[in-house]
Design a protein around this nucleic acid. Structure first.
Lengths: 117, 117
DNA sequence: AAAATAGGTGACCATTTGGTCACGTGTCAA
DNA sequence: TTGACACGTGACCAAATGGTCACCTATTTT
């Protein structure tokens, strides 16, 4: 229905949400958020799963454009792309409510800290 | 691992992402984003699915805390809760990158508009 | 050139998920 | 109080998903 401009990127929202629906894939995003540009083998070593499983998950993340890759010889470096996440946010949170919400989530974080020890 | 403060709300991140992974459920959130406080019957009329299907989806959204309900007699009014969405955003987008990203997504939106007609 | 390294493919199986239906409960109005 | 209305439950089936494996290609190193 919507014609997307292919100039910057393509976002298929179903692919993105399906990609985020799996714990392992979210953990892979966490790893890349902490440090970008890792190879499949390096990521595999952080997850208790075979290389094949991890490769499959990374492929799903790529196709959702949540992860972008750069090839370097026989290695494939993985990078986190935050744009689709930002679009999720913008879909259900309006500009004027955002600051108040940010304050609330901040408060939540503080309460957690206080609880943690 | 993290002890959550039950004071404000509980967030099970898996429930949230699984809930968002379905097109119909996202559409229900869109409907509630446009106008809050609707009943099951009203929401059902907007979707080509039986009442049972819609009820099941709403239950999933409730359990994920993406929708909160208020009972009024025999009716059940549904409201959108943006907090879990905000938490998704905060997980993978750092505070300093957010403004630049917002500009990018804004540009994207403009390009779409230009394309659309 | 041979061996080691990094990654890809298609098939397979167990489990989960989406949607429908028959039936049941609580609330309101005539 | 009787019937209409708003919603909930448990069973059921087809389809999609997560994970593993045997086997494959391409690049680098010795």
């Amino acid at each position: 229905m919507t014609k997307w401009s292919p100039i910057l990127w393509e976002m298929d929202d179903d692919r993105v949400f399906k990609a985020l629906a799996d714990r392992t894939r979210r953990f892979l995003l966490d790893l890349l958020y902490a440090r970008d540009g890792r190879t499949l083998t390096e990521l595999e070593s952080e997850v208790s799963m075979t290389r094949f499983g991890v490769a499959k998950h990374l492929k799903v993340l790529e196709e959702a454009d949540l992860v972008v890759v750069r090839r370097s010889g026989r290695e494939k470096l993985h990078y986190l792309n935050p744009v689709p996440i930002r679009l999720i946010h913008d879909r259900w949170i309006d500009k004027y409510a955002a600051p108040r919400l940010a304050a609330l989530t901040e408060l939540k974080r503080e309460l957690e800290q206080r609880d943690d020890h």
